[in-house]
């Protein structure tokens, strides 16, 4: 079935065109529009010429924007760190200590909670963390303390706990995949050469699974930094993050230009952090040679 390249190229392009046209019209064009709006002059509900850097200057000059971006960044990084640290041993266990035919069952068990209504899961954390909740009533009945902790009243802490729970399965899967690819004979070689199991792990398994760790970090970081529901429900809207601010600008204030500038700035921030993650990974792999 030898095909000349141009015929193959035409067939491929024709086949992918419905999907391509869809994403160009509904994703590429809107993203480009946001980019253009961010340098236009805003008026309520629309945008006007001339081109201006005013919106970005506004972002820079008002500390509240910087504060919210920094807060979202720190919350997301903390959540990412916790999630990946908690997930690694689980992925390791499933990859190294579970019989091959049972592995997909374990993964299935880990992913099920993720597929159940996010909003309901978030709200249930009230029951666990809140006044008279599971944590407080258990600790009090065991006699560890005599006043309520009421963790839910600490907005940022509860946002972190809820997000770390919500994105846990996302972290397990990529780490598991990279651990599966680790050549088991390398581990035997390491131990034959006199390394302890712990140092074999540190010097062979961990570096080889780093791409999975980085992938996990990215997969957790990106949706957490842009999360809308959790700050709204758990934080009671008192601790807005990026997504909540974009909503305020674009919908409540109908300031398309300013909202677009903020959206572009947050995309830039997410992009920069992602690139740093990827570079770290590259450096890590390079360092092994």
């Amino acid at each position: 079935m030898a095909q000349i390249p141009s015929a193959e190229a035409r067939a491929g392009l024709k086949l992918i065109s419905p999907t391509a046209i869809y994403v160009i019209l509904l994703l590429a064009v809107p993203l480009a529009t946001v980019l253009i709006y961010s340098v236009l002059t805003g008026s309520r509900g629309s945008v006007l010429l001339p081109i201006t850097g005013e919106n970005y200057a506004e972002l820079w000059s008002r500390p509240v924007y910087g504060y919210i971006m920094l807060k979202s960044l720190l919350v997301a990084l903390t959540v990412t760190f916790i999630t990946v640290m908690l997930a690694y041993p689980v992925a390791y266990f499933v990859s190294f200590h579970v019989k091959p035919e049972r592995k997909s069952l374990w993964l299935f068990l880990i992913t099920i909670p993720f597929w159940t209504s996010y909003i309901i899961r978030v709200s249930l954390w009230f029951v666990i963390l809140g006044y008279d909740g599971v944590v407080d009533s258990t600790l009090m009945s065991l006699g560890f303390m005599d006043t309520q902790l009421n963790i839910a009243s600490y907005s940022i802490l509860s946002i972190i706990i809820v997000l770390a729970h919500a994105y846990a399965p996302f972290a397990v899967l990529p780490i598991f995949v990279s651990l599966e690819k680790v050549d088991r004979s390398l581990l035997e070689a390491g131990q034959d050469l006199g390394e302890s199991r712990w140092s074999t792990f540190l010097r062979v398994t961990l570096p080889l699974s780093m791409p999975g760790v980085i992938a996990a970090a990215l997969i957790v970081f990106i949706p957490t930094v842009g999360d809308y529901v959790t700050p709204e429900l758990v934080g009671d809207g008192k601790e807005p993050m990026i997504a909540n601010l974009i909503e305020t600008q674009l919908l409540k204030l109908a300031n398309f230009a300013q909202g677009s500038a903020f959206a572009v700035a947050s995309m830039l921030m997410v992009g920069i952090v992602s690139v740093v993650f990827v570079l770290l990974n590259r450096r890590f792999i390079g360092g092994q040679k």
């Binding site: 994703l27 529009t33 946001v34 949706p223 809308y228 909503e247 959206a263």
Partner: peptide
Amino acid sequence: VLPEMIVAMA
């Protein structure tokens, strides 16, 4: 790899 809010708002 894009926060959903950005897709929605754009």
